[in-house]
Simulated scan of single mutants.
Amino acid sequence: MTYDTLAIERCGAVATVWMDRPEVFNAFDEQLIAELAAACAALDADAGVRVVVLAGRGKHFSAGADLNWMRRAADSSEADNLADSRKFAAMLHTLASMSKPTIARVQGAALGGGTGLTAACDMAIAAADASFATSEVKFGIIPAVISPYVLRAIGPRHALRYFQSAERFGAAEAKAMGLVSEVVAVDELDAAVDRLVQALLACGPQAQLAAKQLIAAINGRPIDPEVGEETATRIARQRATAEAREGFAAFFEKRQPAWMA
């Protein structure tokens, strides 16, 4: 599939999805949303892809919504806005629910929906020059569609401030809040992403998916006998898989597992 707003790079089992609108700081509109949803679905279905990196061409990750798109939305009916918002929500869900690890590679501005894309990825590494904001209230709107992912990343207390103040916050603050896991110098960003990619490639792909599903199933629940039973069931099921047998065999035989071949 060819894209007008994205560029897909493949390097072995790693796919990098570049938002490719640097002239507008990778701001997104209807087309980029549709293409990003399609790209995520296609890469998720590709058994040859183990890790997906989301990145932005140029100086900025994503400045959020394209101003022309916002202007069209302001002049549209509530029904048209609902249809647009549903497509945006579906794209974020497709990204967040991918069956393989996803990494946001963030430099420069990651504003509004750019913060949402960062939060929708499983993990994020930011350059020291990165800045974030949920800036929607400055335009009289709210960060509704991105809110489940941003709340999951930074928690309600931080969200109460930044959803209402629209203040920008830097990479160090984003790390402290949990939005990104690592902050590095701008010229070290690719190396830091690659280190994380290599760590991910060393692990069993089916176990990674099961771990992701485990978090979704257990997060927020009380630690009670029901949760204990579910965790016991999940590890028993995983231990019985061919991947687990291969992982243990590789360890005891002092060799690399098959998924690293």
Rank of each mutant, 00 (worst) to 15 (best):
M1W: 14
M1L: 06
Y3D: 12
A7E: 11
A7S: 11
G12M: 14
A13D: 12
D20Y: 07
P22H: 06
Q31E: 12
A37C: 05
A37S: 13
A38T: 12
A45P: 07
D46Y: 03
A47M: 02
A47E: 05
G48P: 08
V51S: 02
V52D: 01
G56K: 06
G58P: 08
K59L: 15
D66K: 01
M70C: 09
A74P: 00
A74V: 02
D75T: 14
A79R: 02
N81M: 11
L82C: 06
S85G: 08
K87M: 08
K87L: 10
A89R: 06
A89G: 01
L95W: 07
K100F: 03
K100D: 03
V106I: 13
V106P: 08
A110W: 10
A110P: 01
L111W: 04
L111K: 00
G112Q: 10
G114W: 00
T115V: 01
T115F: 00
T118S: 11
M123I: 04
A124K: 09
A126I: 01
A127T: 02
A130H: 05
F132R: 03
K138P: 02
F139E: 12
I142D: 14
I142G: 07
P143M: 09
P143R: 06
V145A: 10
L151H: 12
L151A: 11
L151F: 07
R157T: 14
R161P: 03
Y162A: 08
F163P: 04
F163M: 13
A166Y: 10
R168P: 07
G170I: 09
E173W: 04
K175P: 03
A176F: 01
M177Q: 12
G178V: 01
L179N: 07
L179P: 00
L179T: 01
V183Q: 05
V184H: 05
V184R: 14
V184G: 08
A185E: 14
A185N: 11
D187I: 06
A191E: 13
A191C: 06
D194S: 11
R195V: 02
L196S: 11
P205C: 14
Q206R: 10
Q208P: 00
A211T: 05
I218G: 06
N219F: 14
D224A: 00
P225L: 09
E226T: 13
E229W: 12
T231M: 09
T231W: 03
R234F: 03
R234K: 02
A236D: 05
E246L: 06
A249R: 15
A250K: 04
F252G: 02
F252R: 12
K254H: 08
P257S: 14
M260E: 12
A261Y: 09
